[in-house]
Design a protein around this nucleic acid. Sequence first.
DNA 1: CGTCAATGAATCTTCGAAAATTTTTTGTTT
DNA 2: AAACAAAAAATTTTCGAAGATTCATTGACG
Lengths: 223, 223
Amino acid sequence: MSDEITTSSSPVFRRLREEILSGHLRPGDRLRVDSLRERYSVGGSPIRDALMRLESEGFVRLEQNKGFRVSSVSREDLLDVARTRSEIESIALRWSIESGGMEWEGDVVGALHRLNSVDKTDHSGNGAGSAEWLRYHRAFHLALISACESPTMIAIYQRLFDQAERYVALSIKETAEIRDDVAEHREIAEAALARDADGAVDLARRHIARTTAKLERHHSAGP
Amino acid sequence: MSDEITTSSSPVFRRLREEILSGHLRPGDRLRVDSLRERYSVGGSPIRDALMRLESEGFVRLEQNKGFRVSSVSREDLLDVARTRSEIESIALRWSIESGGMEWEGDVVGALHRLNSVDKTDHSGNGAGSAEWLRYHRAFHLALISACESPTMIAIYQRLFDQAERYVALSIKETAEIRDDVAEHREIAEAALARDADGAVDLARRHIARTTAKLERHHSAGP
DNA sequence: CGTCAATGAATCTTCGAAAATTTTTTGTTT
DNA sequence: AAACAAAAAATTTTCGAAGATTCATTGACG
Protein backbone atom coordinates (compact mmCIF):
# COMPACT_ATOMS: atom_id res chain seq x y z
CA MET A 1 0.00 0.00 0.00
CA SER A 2 3.05 2.22 -0.08
CA ASP A 3 4.33 3.99 -3.16
CA GLU A 4 6.11 7.32 -3.03
CA ILE A 5 9.60 5.99 -3.26
CA THR A 6 10.89 8.73 -5.44
CA THR A 7 7.97 11.10 -5.18
CA SER A 8 8.41 14.64 -4.08
CA SER A 9 6.06 17.08 -5.61
CA SER A 10 5.18 20.70 -5.49
CA PRO A 11 1.83 21.69 -6.97
CA VAL A 12 3.44 23.34 -9.97
CA PHE A 13 5.53 20.24 -10.64
CA ARG A 14 2.45 18.07 -10.68
CA ARG A 15 0.49 20.40 -12.91
CA LEU A 16 3.28 20.86 -15.41
CA ARG A 17 3.92 17.16 -15.50
CA GLU A 18 0.24 16.50 -16.02
CA GLU A 19 -0.01 19.03 -18.84
CA ILE A 20 3.03 17.67 -20.62
CA LEU A 21 1.94 14.09 -20.23
CA SER A 22 -1.59 14.83 -21.34
CA GLY A 23 -0.31 16.54 -24.45
CA HIS A 24 -1.72 19.92 -23.58
CA LEU A 25 1.83 21.18 -23.72
CA ARG A 26 3.22 19.97 -27.01
CA PRO A 27 6.73 18.64 -27.58
CA GLY A 28 9.13 21.45 -28.35
CA ASP A 29 6.99 24.09 -26.67
CA ARG A 30 8.99 26.69 -24.88
CA LEU A 31 8.54 27.00 -21.14
CA ARG A 32 9.30 30.60 -20.25
CA VAL A 33 9.67 31.11 -16.58
CA ASP A 34 7.79 34.42 -16.67
CA SER A 35 4.79 32.99 -18.48
CA LEU A 36 4.66 30.12 -16.02
CA ARG A 37 5.13 32.53 -13.14
CA GLU A 38 1.99 34.31 -14.17
CA ARG A 39 0.15 31.16 -15.19
CA TYR A 40 0.55 29.56 -11.78
CA SER A 41 0.78 32.82 -9.82
CA VAL A 42 3.97 31.82 -8.05
CA GLY A 43 7.57 33.02 -7.91
CA GLY A 44 10.39 32.01 -10.17
CA SER A 45 12.08 29.64 -7.74
CA PRO A 46 9.36 27.01 -7.53
CA ILE A 47 9.02 27.13 -11.30
CA ARG A 48 12.72 26.49 -11.68
CA ASP A 49 12.64 23.69 -9.13
CA ALA A 50 9.78 22.01 -10.92
CA LEU A 51 11.38 22.35 -14.34
CA MET A 52 14.63 21.03 -12.95
CA ARG A 53 12.91 17.97 -11.64
CA LEU A 54 10.98 17.47 -14.85
CA GLU A 55 14.25 17.63 -16.72
CA SER A 56 15.65 14.85 -14.57
CA GLU A 57 12.65 12.74 -15.50
CA GLY A 58 13.12 13.50 -19.15
CA PHE A 59 9.97 15.50 -19.79
CA VAL A 60 11.70 18.79 -20.44
CA ARG A 61 15.16 19.66 -21.53
CA LEU A 62 17.31 22.58 -20.50
CA GLU A 63 19.85 24.48 -22.53
CA GLN A 64 22.14 26.69 -20.51
CA ASN A 65 20.93 30.29 -20.57
CA LYS A 66 18.44 29.40 -23.26
CA GLY A 67 15.64 28.11 -21.14
CA PHE A 68 13.47 25.04 -20.92
CA ARG A 69 11.47 23.27 -23.58
CA VAL A 70 9.09 20.37 -23.55
CA SER A 71 11.29 17.53 -24.71
CA SER A 72 10.76 16.40 -28.24
CA VAL A 73 9.36 13.10 -29.38
CA SER A 74 10.37 10.98 -32.30
CA ARG A 75 9.84 7.58 -33.78
CA GLU A 76 13.38 6.60 -32.82
CA ASP A 77 12.90 7.67 -29.23
CA LEU A 78 9.61 5.81 -28.99
CA LEU A 79 11.22 2.64 -30.27
CA ASP A 80 14.24 3.07 -28.06
CA VAL A 81 12.18 3.62 -24.94
CA ALA A 82 9.89 0.71 -25.76
CA ARG A 83 12.73 -1.63 -26.48
CA THR A 84 14.55 -0.70 -23.29
CA ARG A 85 11.39 -0.95 -21.25
CA SER A 86 10.77 -4.37 -22.66
CA GLU A 87 14.15 -5.59 -21.44
CA ILE A 88 13.84 -4.00 -18.03
CA GLU A 89 10.36 -5.36 -17.50
CA SER A 90 11.54 -8.81 -18.52
CA ILE A 91 14.28 -8.86 -15.93
CA ALA A 92 12.21 -7.35 -13.16
CA LEU A 93 9.36 -9.69 -13.91
CA ARG A 94 11.60 -12.73 -13.63
CA TRP A 95 12.98 -11.55 -10.34
CA SER A 96 9.52 -10.79 -9.10
CA ILE A 97 8.17 -14.20 -10.04
CA GLU A 98 11.12 -15.73 -8.26
CA SER A 99 10.76 -13.78 -5.04
CA GLY A 100 7.08 -12.94 -4.91
CA GLY A 101 4.97 -14.46 -2.16
CA MET A 102 1.33 -14.56 -1.27
CA GLU A 103 1.12 -10.85 -0.67
CA TRP A 104 2.53 -10.11 -4.11
CA GLU A 105 0.00 -12.46 -5.68
CA GLY A 106 -2.75 -10.58 -3.95
CA ASP A 107 -1.41 -7.26 -5.21
CA VAL A 108 -1.35 -8.54 -8.77
CA VAL A 109 -4.84 -9.98 -8.60
CA GLY A 110 -6.15 -6.80 -7.04
CA ALA A 111 -4.46 -4.55 -9.56
CA LEU A 112 -5.83 -6.62 -12.43
CA HIS A 113 -9.31 -6.46 -10.98
CA ARG A 114 -9.18 -2.70 -10.58
CA LEU A 115 -7.83 -2.30 -14.11
CA ASN A 116 -10.67 -4.30 -15.56
CA SER A 117 -13.24 -2.41 -13.53
CA VAL A 118 -12.65 1.02 -15.01
CA ASP A 119 -13.85 2.23 -18.32
CA LYS A 120 -11.08 2.74 -20.81
CA THR A 121 -12.76 5.56 -22.61
CA ASP A 122 -13.15 8.91 -21.01
CA HIS A 123 -16.73 10.10 -20.97
CA SER A 124 -15.93 13.52 -19.58
CA GLY A 125 -15.79 14.81 -23.11
CA ASN A 126 -12.30 16.12 -23.74
CA GLY A 127 -11.08 13.02 -25.50
CA ALA A 128 -8.01 12.83 -23.29
CA GLY A 129 -8.48 9.20 -22.41
CA SER A 130 -9.36 7.95 -19.01
CA ALA A 131 -6.85 9.23 -16.53
CA GLU A 132 -8.17 6.62 -14.18
CA TRP A 133 -7.47 3.80 -16.61
CA LEU A 134 -3.95 5.07 -17.22
CA ARG A 135 -3.33 5.13 -13.48
CA TYR A 136 -4.59 1.58 -12.95
CA HIS A 137 -2.73 0.36 -15.99
CA ARG A 138 0.47 1.73 -14.54
CA ALA A 139 -0.34 0.23 -11.17
CA PHE A 140 -0.91 -3.18 -12.73
CA HIS A 141 2.44 -3.28 -14.44
CA LEU A 142 4.14 -2.04 -11.31
CA ALA A 143 2.40 -4.67 -9.24
CA LEU A 144 3.77 -7.36 -11.50
CA ILE A 145 7.36 -6.36 -10.83
CA SER A 146 6.82 -5.10 -7.30
CA ALA A 147 8.31 -8.21 -5.71
CA CYS A 148 11.59 -8.00 -7.59
CA GLU A 149 13.23 -6.61 -4.47
CA SER A 150 15.23 -4.10 -6.42
CA PRO A 151 14.42 -0.46 -5.74
CA THR A 152 16.89 0.50 -8.44
CA MET A 153 15.15 -1.63 -11.03
CA ILE A 154 11.73 -0.33 -10.03
CA ALA A 155 12.88 3.28 -10.24
CA ILE A 156 14.27 2.71 -13.71
CA TYR A 157 11.10 0.99 -14.79
CA GLN A 158 8.91 3.79 -13.53
CA ARG A 159 10.83 6.32 -15.56
CA LEU A 160 10.59 4.28 -18.71
CA PHE A 161 6.92 3.71 -18.15
CA ASP A 162 6.37 7.43 -17.75
CA GLN A 163 8.13 8.11 -21.01
CA ALA A 164 6.15 5.45 -22.80
CA GLU A 165 2.92 6.68 -21.32
CA ARG A 166 3.59 10.08 -22.78
CA TYR A 167 3.46 8.60 -26.24
CA VAL A 168 0.24 6.85 -25.33
CA ALA A 169 -1.25 10.09 -24.10
CA LEU A 170 -0.15 12.00 -27.18
CA SER A 171 -1.71 9.31 -29.31
CA ILE A 172 -4.96 9.32 -27.35
CA LYS A 173 -5.03 13.09 -27.59
CA GLU A 174 -5.67 12.75 -31.29
CA THR A 175 -7.28 9.42 -31.83
CA ALA A 176 -9.37 9.42 -28.65
CA GLU A 177 -8.74 5.73 -28.71
CA ILE A 178 -6.97 3.55 -26.24
CA ARG A 179 -5.60 0.06 -26.55
CA ASP A 180 -7.01 -1.96 -23.71
CA ASP A 181 -6.71 -5.63 -24.36
CA VAL A 182 -8.21 -7.14 -21.26
CA ALA A 183 -7.15 -10.61 -22.31
CA GLU A 184 -3.48 -9.66 -22.58
CA HIS A 185 -3.31 -8.33 -19.07
CA ARG A 186 -5.11 -11.33 -17.69
CA GLU A 187 -2.78 -13.72 -19.47
CA ILE A 188 0.34 -12.00 -18.18
CA ALA A 189 -0.99 -12.08 -14.66
CA GLU A 190 -1.95 -15.73 -14.92
CA ALA A 191 1.45 -16.75 -16.21
CA ALA A 192 3.17 -14.75 -13.50
CA LEU A 193 1.05 -16.26 -10.75
CA ALA A 194 1.68 -19.71 -12.19
CA ARG A 195 5.40 -18.93 -11.83
CA ASP A 196 5.87 -19.42 -15.54
CA ALA A 197 8.62 -16.85 -15.95
CA ASP A 198 9.36 -17.54 -19.61
CA GLY A 199 5.71 -17.40 -20.50
CA ALA A 200 5.02 -14.23 -18.56
CA VAL A 201 8.03 -12.48 -20.00
CA ASP A 202 7.07 -13.51 -23.50
CA LEU A 203 3.52 -12.25 -23.05
CA ALA A 204 4.73 -9.00 -21.54
CA ARG A 205 7.11 -8.46 -24.44
CA ARG A 206 4.36 -9.03 -26.96
CA HIS A 207 2.10 -6.75 -24.99
CA ILE A 208 4.61 -3.92 -25.18
CA ALA A 209 5.41 -4.68 -28.81
CA ARG A 210 1.75 -4.49 -29.84
CA THR A 211 1.21 -1.22 -28.02
CA THR A 212 4.39 0.20 -29.52
CA ALA A 213 3.44 -0.88 -33.03
CA LYS A 214 0.13 0.89 -32.69
CA LEU A 215 1.78 4.02 -31.36
CA GLU A 216 4.35 3.93 -34.11
CA ARG A 217 1.66 3.72 -36.77
CA HIS A 218 -0.01 6.71 -35.29
CA HIS A 219 3.21 8.63 -34.88
CA SER A 220 4.03 8.25 -38.55
CA ALA A 221 0.70 9.75 -39.47
CA GLY A 222 0.75 12.39 -36.75
CA PRO A 223 2.69 15.66 -36.53
CA MET B 1 34.66 11.32 -29.71
CA SER B 2 31.47 12.85 -28.37
CA ASP B 3 30.22 12.54 -24.82
CA GLU B 4 28.04 15.11 -23.16
CA ILE B 5 24.75 13.44 -23.81
CA THR B 6 23.21 14.22 -20.51
CA THR B 7 25.83 16.58 -19.20
CA SER B 8 24.93 20.02 -18.02
CA SER B 9 27.02 21.39 -15.30
CA SER B 10 27.48 24.49 -13.27
CA PRO B 11 30.75 24.80 -11.39
CA VAL B 12 29.12 24.15 -8.04
CA PHE B 13 27.39 21.07 -9.41
CA ARG B 14 30.67 19.64 -10.59
CA ARG B 15 32.48 20.38 -7.35
CA LEU B 16 29.77 18.95 -5.15
CA ARG B 17 29.51 15.88 -7.30
CA GLU B 18 33.25 15.44 -7.18
CA GLU B 19 33.36 15.81 -3.40
CA ILE B 20 30.56 13.34 -2.87
CA LEU B 21 31.99 10.82 -5.27
CA SER B 22 35.47 11.12 -3.84
CA GLY B 23 34.13 10.50 -0.37
CA HIS B 24 35.18 13.87 0.97
CA LEU B 25 31.53 14.44 1.74
CA ARG B 26 30.42 11.37 3.65
CA PRO B 27 27.08 9.58 3.23
CA GLY B 28 24.46 11.11 5.45
CA ASP B 29 26.23 14.44 5.71
CA ARG B 30 23.89 17.35 5.77
CA LEU B 31 24.16 19.86 2.95
CA ARG B 32 22.98 23.17 4.38
CA VAL B 33 22.40 25.71 1.72
CA ASP B 34 23.89 28.50 3.84
CA SER B 35 27.13 26.65 4.51
CA LEU B 36 27.46 25.83 0.84
CA ARG B 37 26.58 29.40 -0.05
CA GLU B 38 29.58 30.55 1.92
CA ARG B 39 31.79 27.63 0.89
CA TYR B 40 31.40 28.37 -2.79
CA SER B 41 30.75 32.10 -2.43
CA VAL B 42 27.62 32.00 -4.50
CA GLY B 43 23.91 32.64 -3.97
CA GLY B 44 21.30 30.16 -2.86
CA SER B 45 19.78 29.56 -6.26
CA PRO B 46 22.75 27.88 -7.94
CA ILE B 47 23.24 25.77 -4.84
CA ARG B 48 19.65 24.64 -5.03
CA ASP B 49 19.90 23.93 -8.73
CA ALA B 50 22.99 21.84 -8.24
CA LEU B 51 21.52 19.90 -5.33
CA MET B 52 18.37 19.33 -7.31
CA ARG B 53 20.35 17.85 -10.15
CA LEU B 54 22.44 15.75 -7.81
CA GLU B 55 19.26 14.42 -6.33
CA SER B 56 18.05 13.34 -9.73
CA GLU B 57 21.31 11.43 -10.15
CA GLY B 58 20.91 9.80 -6.78
CA PHE B 59 23.86 11.36 -5.00
CA VAL B 60 21.83 13.42 -2.57
CA ARG B 61 18.33 13.09 -1.28
CA LEU B 62 15.85 15.80 -0.43
CA GLU B 63 13.21 15.78 2.26
CA GLN B 64 10.60 18.47 1.89
CA ASN B 65 11.42 21.40 4.15
CA LYS B 66 14.14 19.40 5.79
CA GLY B 67 16.96 20.00 3.40
CA PHE B 68 19.44 17.92 1.48
CA ARG B 69 21.73 15.14 2.63
CA VAL B 70 24.39 13.11 0.94
CA SER B 71 22.53 9.93 0.13
CA SER B 72 23.30 7.02 2.35
CA VAL B 73 25.07 3.85 1.37
CA SER B 74 24.37 0.33 2.46
CA ARG B 75 25.27 -3.21 1.67
CA GLU B 76 21.80 -3.77 0.23
CA ASP B 77 22.07 -0.75 -2.02
CA LEU B 78 25.51 -1.76 -3.21
CA LEU B 79 24.27 -5.22 -4.11
CA ASP B 80 21.14 -3.86 -5.73
CA VAL B 81 23.03 -1.38 -7.87
CA ALA B 82 25.63 -3.97 -8.83
CA ARG B 83 23.06 -6.55 -9.73
CA THR B 84 21.06 -4.10 -11.80
CA ARG B 85 24.16 -2.77 -13.49
CA SER B 86 25.16 -6.30 -14.35
CA GLU B 87 21.88 -6.89 -16.16
CA ILE B 88 21.92 -3.57 -17.96
CA GLU B 89 25.49 -4.01 -19.09
CA SER B 90 24.69 -7.48 -20.34
CA ILE B 91 21.88 -6.27 -22.54
CA ALA B 92 23.70 -3.21 -23.81
CA LEU B 93 26.79 -5.26 -24.51
CA ARG B 94 24.84 -7.75 -26.59
CA TRP B 95 23.24 -5.00 -28.60
CA SER B 96 26.58 -3.31 -29.04
CA ILE B 97 28.27 -6.48 -30.25
CA GLU B 98 25.43 -6.94 -32.68
CA SER B 99 25.49 -3.44 -34.11
CA GLY B 100 29.07 -2.33 -33.62
CA GLY B 101 31.23 -1.74 -36.68
CA MET B 102 34.81 -0.94 -37.32
CA GLU B 103 34.65 2.42 -35.63
CA TRP B 104 33.30 0.85 -32.46
CA GLU B 105 36.09 -1.72 -32.49
CA GLY B 106 38.58 1.09 -32.71
CA ASP B 107 36.97 2.87 -29.78
CA VAL B 108 37.15 -0.25 -27.64
CA VAL B 109 40.76 -0.96 -28.52
CA GLY B 110 41.70 2.64 -27.88
CA ALA B 111 39.87 2.79 -24.56
CA LEU B 112 41.54 -0.41 -23.42
CA HIS B 113 44.93 0.92 -24.38
CA ARG B 114 44.42 4.15 -22.51
CA LEU B 115 43.17 2.27 -19.48
CA ASN B 116 46.24 0.08 -19.39
CA SER B 117 48.53 3.04 -19.86
CA VAL B 118 47.66 4.89 -16.67
CA ASP B 119 48.87 4.02 -13.24
CA LYS B 120 46.14 2.71 -11.04
CA THR B 121 47.60 4.10 -7.87
CA ASP B 122 47.58 7.77 -7.21
CA HIS B 123 51.01 9.16 -6.49
CA SER B 124 49.80 12.63 -5.66
CA GLY B 125 49.71 11.62 -2.03
CA ASN B 126 46.13 11.97 -0.82
CA GLY B 127 45.28 8.31 -1.20
CA ALA B 128 42.15 9.11 -3.16
CA GLY B 129 42.93 6.73 -5.97
CA SER B 130 43.83 7.78 -9.43
CA ALA B 131 41.14 10.02 -10.77
CA GLU B 132 42.62 9.44 -14.16
CA TRP B 133 42.29 5.67 -13.86
CA LEU B 134 38.68 5.98 -12.74
CA ARG B 135 37.93 8.16 -15.75
CA TYR B 136 39.51 5.75 -18.21
CA HIS B 137 37.89 2.79 -16.53
CA ARG B 138 34.53 4.42 -16.98
CA ALA B 139 35.37 5.28 -20.58
CA PHE B 140 36.32 1.68 -21.30
CA HIS B 141 33.06 0.25 -20.08
CA LEU B 142 31.15 2.92 -21.94
CA ALA B 143 33.07 2.20 -25.11
CA LEU B 144 32.04 -1.43 -24.91
CA ILE B 145 28.35 -0.57 -24.97
CA SER B 146 28.64 2.57 -27.06
CA ALA B 147 27.41 0.86 -30.22
CA CYS B 148 24.19 -0.40 -28.68
CA GLU B 149 22.32 2.39 -30.44
CA SER B 150 20.15 3.06 -27.44
CA PRO B 151 20.59 6.46 -25.82
CA THR B 152 18.13 5.39 -23.15
CA MET B 153 20.15 2.34 -22.26
CA ILE B 154 23.38 4.29 -22.19
CA ALA B 155 21.90 6.95 -19.94
CA ILE B 156 20.68 4.31 -17.51
CA TYR B 157 24.03 2.61 -17.55
CA GLN B 158 25.91 5.81 -16.85
CA ARG B 159 23.81 6.43 -13.79
CA LEU B 160 24.36 2.97 -12.44
CA PHE B 161 28.05 3.22 -13.12
CA ASP B 162 28.21 6.49 -11.22
CA GLN B 163 26.50 4.93 -8.26
CA ALA B 164 28.81 1.94 -8.32
CA GLU B 165 31.85 4.13 -8.68
CA ARG B 166 30.89 5.93 -5.54
CA TYR B 167 31.27 2.71 -3.60
CA VAL B 168 34.61 2.17 -5.27
CA ALA B 169 35.74 5.66 -4.30
CA LEU B 170 34.57 5.23 -0.73
CA SER B 171 36.46 1.99 -0.54
CA ILE B 172 39.62 3.50 -2.02
CA LYS B 173 39.32 6.37 0.40
CA GLU B 174 40.09 3.98 3.21
CA THR B 175 42.06 1.16 1.70
CA ALA B 176 44.00 3.27 -0.78
CA GLU B 177 43.77 0.20 -2.94
CA ILE B 178 42.12 -0.26 -6.27
CA ARG B 179 41.11 -3.38 -8.10
CA ASP B 180 42.62 -3.21 -11.54
CA ASP B 181 42.74 -6.57 -13.17
CA VAL B 182 44.26 -5.78 -16.52
CA ALA B 183 43.58 -9.29 -17.75
CA GLU B 184 39.85 -9.06 -17.09
CA HIS B 185 39.42 -5.94 -19.14
CA ARG B 186 41.46 -7.35 -21.96
CA GLU B 187 39.44 -10.56 -22.01
CA ILE B 188 36.13 -8.73 -22.13
CA ALA B 189 37.34 -6.58 -24.99
CA GLU B 190 38.66 -9.58 -26.90
CA ALA B 191 35.42 -11.50 -26.55
CA ALA B 192 33.43 -8.46 -27.62
CA LEU B 193 35.58 -7.83 -30.65
CA ALA B 194 35.35 -11.51 -31.55
CA ARG B 195 31.55 -11.04 -31.50
CA ASP B 196 31.26 -13.67 -28.79
CA ALA B 197 28.30 -12.13 -27.03
CA ASP B 198 27.74 -14.91 -24.52
CA GLY B 199 31.40 -14.97 -23.59
CA ALA B 200 31.70 -11.22 -23.29
CA VAL B 201 28.59 -10.96 -21.18
CA ASP B 202 29.76 -13.74 -18.94
CA LEU B 203 33.14 -12.11 -18.45
CA ALA B 204 31.58 -8.74 -17.79
CA ARG B 205 29.27 -10.25 -15.19
CA ARG B 206 32.15 -11.93 -13.41
CA HIS B 207 34.09 -8.70 -13.59
CA ILE B 208 31.32 -6.81 -11.86
CA ALA B 209 30.74 -9.63 -9.41
CA ARG B 210 34.37 -9.71 -8.34
CA THR B 211 34.53 -5.98 -7.87
CA THR B 212 31.29 -6.04 -5.93
CA ALA B 213 32.46 -8.86 -3.70
CA LYS B 214 35.55 -6.92 -2.82
CA LEU B 215 33.56 -3.78 -2.11
CA GLU B 216 31.12 -5.75 -0.02
CA ARG B 217 33.88 -7.21 2.09
CA HIS B 218 35.21 -3.77 2.70
CA HIS B 219 31.81 -2.32 3.38
CA SER B 220 31.13 -4.86 6.11
CA ALA B 221 34.34 -3.85 7.86
CA GLY B 222 33.96 -0.15 7.21
CA PRO B 223 31.68 2.40 8.85
C1' DC C 1 8.87 13.74 37.84
C1' DG C 2 6.95 13.39 33.27
C1' DT C 3 4.09 15.19 29.62
C1' DC C 4 2.73 18.70 26.81
C1' DA C 5 2.14 23.30 24.93
C1' DA C 6 4.41 27.55 23.78
C1' DT C 7 8.29 30.18 22.64
C1' DG C 8 12.80 30.85 20.17
C1' DA C 9 16.42 29.61 16.95
C1' DA C 10 17.89 27.45 12.86
C1' DT C 11 16.89 26.20 8.29
C1' DC C 12 14.47 25.62 4.10
C1' DT C 13 11.62 27.96 0.70
C1' DT C 14 9.90 31.68 -1.85
C1' DC C 15 9.78 36.25 -3.51
C1' DG C 16 10.88 40.49 -6.34
C1' DA C 17 14.48 42.91 -8.28
C1' DA C 18 19.32 43.23 -10.12
C1' DA C 19 22.84 41.10 -13.11
C1' DA C 20 24.25 38.35 -17.02
C1' DT C 21 23.16 36.21 -21.28
C1' DT C 22 20.90 35.50 -25.56
C1' DT C 23 17.97 37.09 -29.27
C1' DT C 24 16.05 40.65 -32.05
C1' DT C 25 16.13 45.00 -34.03
C1' DT C 26 18.25 48.90 -35.88
C1' DG C 27 21.79 51.49 -38.18
C1' DT C 28 26.00 51.87 -40.86
C1' DT C 29 29.21 50.66 -44.42
C1' DT C 30 30.71 48.45 -48.71
C1' DA D 1 20.88 45.44 -51.45
C1' DA D 2 24.04 42.39 -48.33
C1' DA D 3 26.95 42.02 -44.47
C1' DC D 4 28.40 43.41 -40.41
C1' DA D 5 28.40 46.06 -35.91
C1' DA D 6 26.04 48.25 -32.30
C1' DA D 7 22.09 49.08 -29.50
C1' DA D 8 17.65 47.41 -27.54
C1' DA D 9 14.58 43.99 -25.91
C1' DA D 10 13.45 39.70 -24.08
C1' DT D 11 14.81 35.98 -21.17
C1' DT D 12 17.42 33.36 -18.14
C1' DT D 13 20.04 33.26 -13.98
C1' DT D 14 21.48 34.99 -9.65
C1' DC D 15 21.20 37.58 -5.52
C1' DG D 16 19.80 39.10 -0.74
C1' DA D 17 16.00 39.47 2.13
C1' DA D 18 11.25 38.24 3.67
C1' DG D 19 8.13 34.36 4.61
C1' DA D 20 7.29 29.39 6.14
C1' DT D 21 8.48 25.31 8.25
C1' DT D 22 10.95 22.36 11.26
C1' DC D 23 13.76 21.49 15.31
C1' DA D 24 15.33 22.51 20.00
C1' DT D 25 14.57 24.71 24.34
C1' DT D 26 11.98 26.32 27.91
C1' DG D 27 8.26 26.61 31.18
C1' DA D 28 3.73 25.35 32.91
C1' DC D 29 0.68 21.88 34.46
C1' DG D 30 -0.99 17.39 35.95
